[in-house]
Design a protein around this nucleic acid. Structure first.
Length: 577
DNA sequence: GCCGTTTTCGGCCCGACTGTTTTCAGTCG
């Protein structure tokens, strides 16, 4: 059981208790414990085995007992009980913007609303506006949010898909008869979000594989099964599709199942030139073509060979988008893309001085283990109270500590940073003489998301114009699957960033992945610079750099186009400090 | 429910925004 699964159970417990009107502080205690466990750098199951659960911050006797129960029995009695008591759609209702526990309760008590559908109907029938504190505006907003939710196909975050992929590949790879298992589809292309996880297997024993899947602890049921395809429902809600390939068509099928559609469409032209056609059975002679125009089919040895046979450079999955990649591959001029190993340091990380879970020492140690040359500590600024933003005095104390720590390093440097809030009117949350003391200043928006486009655009442009600002953090503010970004004229902002020689961040957090690849390309075209940062709030999430690097790769970036691949001296030159 | 050189009770972070009100409740980050 993963830490995040345990944390999710505690979160659900907190949500349901909140609906029941339980004491605010008790609920917060559950949420705090959930956060602690989610962020804990070693598996919580391990902590449980050592009987040290109750020693974790925010975890006392009671929560330790509940977590132990979950680990031992696979369920929590209290949670099961609450699930029986609380109507089924409550959590979905509470997830709607503008609806919290109080309003969900209000709808339930007065209108008997139990599900999102109930709520939608009540809104349509204009019943909500009759309730205390609810007007026509709120009613309309709720209707719209539910409509939007229904229109959006269910999407899943990439990190969840990749985690399940790792687990399933390890599991399936051990089965008798299984010769190969590869991740494929959108997950292999490192798409921002995925609709499912696709795996391609080569096995001599399909039945055993199906049986093994059925009994896997994270599999709910097998929805469909035929000769070459298994459709599986998993515990995480992420659909799993297992495709079967024979030995002689595994590599073509890997290309076929990886996609994307537009890439394959263009690729078919190259197959056709050899008298071939790629389909779900592999590479076949093209129908209606004279035999002499059909090139002999080779024995496929690996995926690279498929592209090579077509006269193309190998195209990595991240680039298979149906854009210019085939033209570049045909000309042999595909760039060598940036890799995770090229990253020399992270320029956006939070410590436990603000809302992070790890100390500066721990972060530095992990960064050094990762082979980084530098790490910027960028805690929140003073006005962001919920994130325990640092006062000027705290910030200066932190910088003194960083100086002390740096004195002990010979091959590594902690950079004095900050993630300074861009406030409502575009002013920054620390005065210039404080900004000046930092090695690196990340400026980001964390409030007033509802601003209209001109105001928000001006606001961020003003921050860019401040000579002390180096990097704009998570530019659009989007949260994948949760909320779109704020209203912003991205083009104008990128143009100004280019003029001012500023750096735009690719935020690696799988919930954000902000900038998107098209924005990354536009930023570069305008002459702005790019950094790949994690925005990590704990040790584990320093590893998420690979997701940001994937965004950079999908944008076609080389190492040279990302500033934090530079050695420190060169980076400092860019930071002009 | 957790925590404690303020230690077994009584605290536990807050400020802005929105839509609804006529002074505020609920939500959000």
């Amino acid at each position: 059981m993963y830490n995040f699964e345990i944390a999710l159970a505690l979160e659900e417990l907190a949500d349901l208790l909140e609906f029941q009107g339980e004491d605010f502080f008790k609920i917060r205690a559950y949420r705090q414990a959930a956060r602690t466990l989610a962020r804990h750098p070693v598996p919580v199951v391990e902590v449980y085995r050592q009987k040290k659960l109750a020693g974790l911050p925010g975890v006392g006797k009671n929560i330790a007992a509940k977590v132990s129960e979950l680990i031992e029995k696979g369920y929590m009695n209290k949670l099961e009980e609450l699930r029986r008591q609380v109507p089924p759609g409550v959590r979905e209702m509470m997830a709607l913007p503008g609806v919290g526990p109080k309003r969900a309760r209000l709808f339930y008590d007065h209108l008997g609303v139990q599900t999102l559908d109930d709520l939608y109907r009540a809104a349509q029938e204009k019943k909500l506006r009759r309730l205390p504190g609810i007007g026509s505006k709120t009613e309309f907003a709720i209707r719209q949010h539910i409509e939007r939710l229904k229109e959006t196909p269910s999407i899943h975050l990439l990190n969840l898909a990749r985690l399940l992929a790792r687990e399933m590949i390890a599991y399936l790879g051990e089965l008798p008869g299984v010769q190969r298992v590869e991740i494929t589809g959108g997950t292999r292309r490192w798409e921002e979000t995925v609709s499912d996880l696709d795996l391609l297997v080569q096995t001599t024993d399909w039945e055993t594989l199906a049986e093994a899947l059925r009994s896997h602890p994270r599999v709910v049921e097998i929805l469909e099964k035929d000769e070459n395809r298994l459709q599986v429902q998993t515990l995480w809600g992420l659909p799993l599709e297992v495709l079967r390939a024979a030995e002689d068509n595994f590599w073509p099928l890997l290309v076929y199942s990886t996609g994307n559609k537009a890439h394959l469409q263009k690729l078919q032209d190259f197959f056709a030139r050899r008298g071939w056609h790629l389909c779900e059975e592999g590479v076949k002679p093209l129908a209606g073509v004279a035999a002499e125009a059909i090139a002999p089919l080779p024995q496929w040895q690996d995926e690279e060979q498929v592209y090579r046979e077509l006269g193309l450079q190998y195209i990595v999955p991240e680039l298979r988008q149906g854009g210019e990649e085939l033209v570049l591959a045909a000309a042999g001029v595909l760039p060598r893309l940036i890799e995770t190993g090229d990253i020399k340091g992270d320029l956006h990380v939070h410590s436990d001085w603000s809302d992070g879970g790890a100390s500066i020492e721990q972060l530095a140690e992990r960064a050094r283990q990762k082979g980084y040359e530098y790490l910027a500590i960028t805690d929140h600024s003073q006005s962001l109270k919920v994130a325990r933003g640092l006062s000027i005095e705290q910030l200066q104390e932190q910088y003194r500590q960083i100086d002390r720590l740096n004195a002990g390093f010979s091959d590594f440097t902690l950079l004095k940073g900050m993630e300074v809030d861009i406030k409502m009117a575009g002013e920054l949350d620390y005065p210039d003489e404080i900004l000046e003391q930092a090695d690196v200043v990340v400026a980001s928006v964390h409030s007033g998301f509802q601003q209209e486009m001109p105001a928000m655009t001006r606001r961020i442009m003003q921050a860019i114009e401040n000579p002390h600002v180096d990097i704009i953090g998570h530019l659009t503010g989007r949260m994948l699957g949760q909320r779109p970004g704020y209203q912003l004229d991205v083009e104008k902002v990128l143009e100004l960033a280019g003029k001012c020689g500023k750096i735009l961040e690719i935020n690696s957090s799988p919930e954000r992945l902000d900038l998107s690849p098209p924005h990354v390309r536009r930023a570069l075209e305008h002459g702005a610079k790019i950094a790949v940062n994690t925005d990590a709030h704990d040790l584990q999430r320093l590893e998420e750099i690979e997701y940001g690097v994937a965004v950079a790769r999908r944008a076609g970036l080389t190492r040279e186009q990302v500033v934090n691949t530079l050695p420190l001296a060169d980076l400092r030159h860019i930071l002009r400090r």
